[in-house]
Design a protein around this nucleic acid. Structure first.
Lengths: 200, 200
DNA sequence: GCTACTGTACCGACTGGACGGTATAGTGAA
DNA sequence: TTCACTATACCGTCCAGTCGGTACAGTAGC
């Protein structure tokens, strides 16, 4: 039985329309985020993307190439996000805080995946993360005009990202997952403080 | 040539005085923090602790036992820190913020090591991290009496820890390592906001 | 319209090294 | 003699990367 063209749209989860390359990057990022760096083996990525290991290695000659693929995707998505954030009607800061929690968006996935790689001592991934942070900090500073406040806001955003990425599902109510209204309260706090400091 | 007793105090970094068990946990935590979970192999830990692999496995029968060792140490150090933080003359919040950045203390090392384990999908490590966070949140809430502010403070603390643990050494000045005076500014900001909200 | 050939996309068995863990013989201090 | 190791050899598994193929679309010459 030579080739069975069984599955152009084989995998329910993966967008069958996307190119094989994109599906592979999706799968890699997903596995990194969900199960950590160790689980994102070539075999696992191939299986999740609905290709064979050989097929994967046809597109990405090594695991490093796969990492570069995720990093490139992150850079693209961050660029897009920076544009979106600047023109956000609710203001850049509110937008930043609200999108800092993992929402399952492509940006989030790429960000979490890159964090995992950075934690696995991949310095390129660390640079990519820093670049993204620099871009966001720039916007916040532009918006508030206050370096200290801007740093505090970035730290809150980092803390939000860290918590939702690495400590999902809380046991106690104290630090339970932040609800939408908690985020609203946070945004209100920040808005208030920002207004106060602006009118020194 | 069986054993060359070349190195009881072989390793300059490791405190030769501490018990072998403690030195092994030190080495494990250090390797986890510096080079990620993947680098913390039994062989590497044994070498860093200045014992043989057989010696390591004499004390810790498995890698899981080693993980438990780090978790236990974290629990002990957190307990100690909570006591210290309550009686801090500068107030709990300032103390928390100031000690959130990786300073190379034993607590930091244990915390970073546990974060790496948590990221590697170790749910016990995640629980330990959450427990520590709950403890600190409790103190902050007690001190400020304001849940929203307390959450913001915890997020800043998390952001600080995340940045210093996972993104050390910055390339650009924008998000460069926070200096001592930056931290002072941050603490001032928080103190100010806390006072303001207390006197609604 | 057929043959020969090229390039692209992919499959899956296999290899070699790393790693966790086991086993065991030996050693030196208390 | 026991305790706390060292040293070495070994096993099974996992994993990145290699390699020899297969399928098929296109295309150029006849």
């Amino acid at each position: 039985m030579p080739d069975t063209p069984e599955n152009p749209p084989i995998d329910a989860a993966a967008p069958a329309s996307a190119s094989t390359r994109d599906r592979i990057i999706d799968a890699f990022a997903e596995l990194l985020g969900e199960n950590g760096e160790r689980a994102a083996t070539l075999d696992a990525v191939a299986a999740a993307a609905g290709v064979s290991k050989g097929g994967l290695l046809y597109h990405f000659g090594s695991k490093e190439a796969l990492v570069e693929g995720v990093l490139e995707r992150l850079a693209t998505l961050v660029e897009r996000d920076v544009a979106a954030i600047r023109s956000s009607p609710s203001g850049p800061v509110a937008h930043l805080i609200r999108t800092s929690m993992a929402t399952g968006s492509a940006l989030d996935k790429a960000l979490v995946a890159t964090s995992r790689l950075a934690q696995a001592s991949n310095s390129t991934a660390r640079d990519a993360l820093r670049a993204a942070n620099d871009a966001w900090y720039g916007i916040v500073l532009e918006s508030t005009g206050d370096p200290v406040l801007s740093r505090a806001i970035m730290l809150i955003s980092d803390g939000l990202a860290y918590g939702s990425a690495f400590l999902p599902g809380s046991s106690t109510p104290e630090t339970a997952e932040l609800s939408a209204s908690d985020i609203d309260d946070l945004v209100d706090l920040i808005t208030e403080v920002t207004a106060q400091r602006a009118g020194h």
